[in-house]
Computed example of a mutant assay.
Amino acid sequence: MLELAPGVSQLADFPRNQINVYVVENILVDAGTLAARGRVLRQVTGRDLQANLITHGHPDHFGSSRAVCTRLGIPLWAGVADREAIETAIPATGEGRLARLMGKFPLAPGHPVTRVLHEGDEVAGFTVLEVPGHSPGHIALWREWDAVLLCGDVFFNIRRPSQPPGFLTWKPDVNRQSMRRLADLRPRLVLFGHGKPERYGPLERMPI
């Protein structure tokens, strides 16, 4: 596990930075795919985790949540508008045939969400931001004092920060608004669902 900021660590994975999972104080943020459950559990077993928070209802982020929550006896938290997608394992997707097929064949088991999160909620020193678009109930975590942002999939950072793929995104135009909102915060450290962390100077703004 790699510490990136005070109280914020990234779990090891392979390939590195492909599908990211974080620990923020005593909260596991996202859980990777179903296939990642062993890797995630090995790294967090023995830590005093309070909950597994999911940034959005896509199976590459809640895939291991049932295994992790069951093994560790912790609750699952998520944005209010993604609760159903996580519990039924049927995500909201974009347009097109491939997107429709993905919605018909669950890629991970669902799991009950015991706390729904709303704009302004406080979690482990971070503020919950509702940033829909990639999914209806997507949330991000923002810590103002050191400008650390966990943005989930509002941005992908495969080569550079950019819009996530359209066929995976529920409402691309709404997601663009969320991208602008997060960029306007001028974060100093951005942690993505996919891609390596990015650091910015005090006068820099995330590209959108």
Rank of each mutant, 00 (worst) to 15 (best):
R176S: 12
P202S: 07
G94C: 08
R205P: 04
Q177I: 10
L168W: 10
V24Q: 00
T45W: 02
F14S: 15
R71Y: 01
T55D: 02
V44K: 00
I139N: 00
L141K: 03
A81I: 06
V128I: 11
T88C: 09
I27F: 10
V23Y: 00
A81E: 14
V113A: 00
G152R: 03
I208H: 11
L129R: 09
R176L: 15
M1V: 07
A35Y: 11
Q10C: 12
D82S: 06
G32M: 03
A35R: 13
M179I: 07
R42K: 11
A108Q: 10
T93C: 12
G63A: 10
I74Y: 07
P132Y: 08
G46D: 05
T169F: 04
L185Y: 06
P136D: 06
G46M: 01
V40T: 05
R181V: 01
T114L: 12
L76I: 09
V21E: 00
V40M: 02
R180V: 11
H56I: 07
R143F: 00
L4F: 09
A12I: 09
A36D: 15
H138A: 12
T45Y: 00
L185F: 05
P106L: 06
A92I: 07
R199G: 08
G94K: 09
E144A: 14
F155L: 11
L98K: 14
V68Y: 01
P172K: 04
L11V: 02
N175C: 11
G7P: 09
Q177D: 12
M206P: 06
V80L: 11
D30W: 02
L76C: 15
E198C: 15
L150A: 02
R186K: 13
G110V: 01
M1T: 09
Q50F: 08
R159D: 15
M206K: 04
R71H: 07
G125Y: 03
L150D: 04
C69F: 02
R176Q: 11
D173G: 12
G201L: 06
L168F: 15
T114N: 06
P165H: 08
F192D: 08
K104W: 15
I54H: 06
V68W: 00
